[in-house]
Design a protein around this nucleic acid. Structure first.
Lengths: 102, 102
DNA sequence: ATAGTTTAGTTACACAAAGTAAGTGAATAG
DNA sequence: CTATTCACTTACTTTGTGTAACTAAACTAT
C-alpha cells in the first residue's frame, strides 16, 4: 500500500465513505433492498440528509433507485456491485468496534 | 453481524473514523511515529484541524503524544494498540478504492 | 363534500463543523 | 536586533448538518 499525500484511501473517505450517514446507509442496504421510509427508520439520518446522501450514492454508482409509480409512491434502493463490495470494509469496522468500543 | 438502529459500526464512524481527516491521519501513522509538521505535509489537513483531530484521537486512546521540550519544540505522535488495530480496516478501504475509484 | 392519511421527498432557517489566514512564545542563528 | 523554526491558537468566513414545516396525489373515513 503506497501512501502518497492524496492517496486513494483519503479519496474514498472524502468522496464517499466519510460523508455523514453514508456507511450507516450502506450497512442497512447490505441486508437487502430497502424503501426510503425503512432507511429513515433504520438509521438516525433525517429525511433531508437521507435524500441528499442517497442521491450522492446513486451518482457514485453505489446504489440504484427504483420508483414504483403508485400512490402513495414507493421507491426502493438497492446496492450495486460497487456498493455490495463495501461489505468487507464494514465487517472490519465491526470487528474493530466490537473489540475496542465499550 | 447484527444491525440495530444504533449499531457499533455507526458509533465507530460517528465518534472516530467518520471525522474529517481521521482516517488519513491514522493511515500516515501506520508507517511509524510522526511529528506534527510531518502530518501537516503528508495529509491535506490544516494545522487547525490537525491539532483538533489529534487531540480527539489522543482522547479516544488511538494515539499517544510525546513532547520533547526543545526549542523549537518537537512533538511526536504514535499509534497505540487500538490505533494500530485499524490497519485491516484501512487495507480493506484501499482494496475497494483500488478496484472502484478511477 | 371535507378532512385526514400515506410516501418520498423539498424548503427555510439555525447552528455546528471545517477552511483560511494571521498571530504567539521561546531559543537560537546571523 | 531581526529572522527562523515548530506546534500550536485565535479570529473570521464558508460549508455542512439538524430540525421542522410544507408539498402532491390518490385513497379512506366522516
Amino acid at each position: 500500500m503506497q501512501v502518497p499525500r492524496k492517496c486513494i484511501v483519503t479519496q474514498a473517505m472524502e468522496e464517499i465513505l466519510g460523508k455523514k450517514w453514508a456507511v450507516s446507509i450502506l450497512l442497512q442496504l447490505l441486508s437487502g433492498p430497502k424503501r426510503f421510509c425503512q432507511l429513515e427508520e433504520d438509521t438516525d439520518a433525517s429525511g433531508r440528509l437521507l435524500s441528499e446522501r442517497l442521491k450522492e450514492l446513486e451518482a457514485a454508482g453505489m446504489v440504484t433507485r427504483t420508483i414504483y409509480p403508485e400512490v402513495p409512491p414507493r421507491v426502493v434502493y438497492e446496492l450495486t456491485e460497487k456498493g455490495k463490495d463495501v461489505e468487507p470494509i464494514i465487517e472490519q469496522i465491526y470487528g474493530w468496534a466490537s473489540k475496542w468500543l465499550r
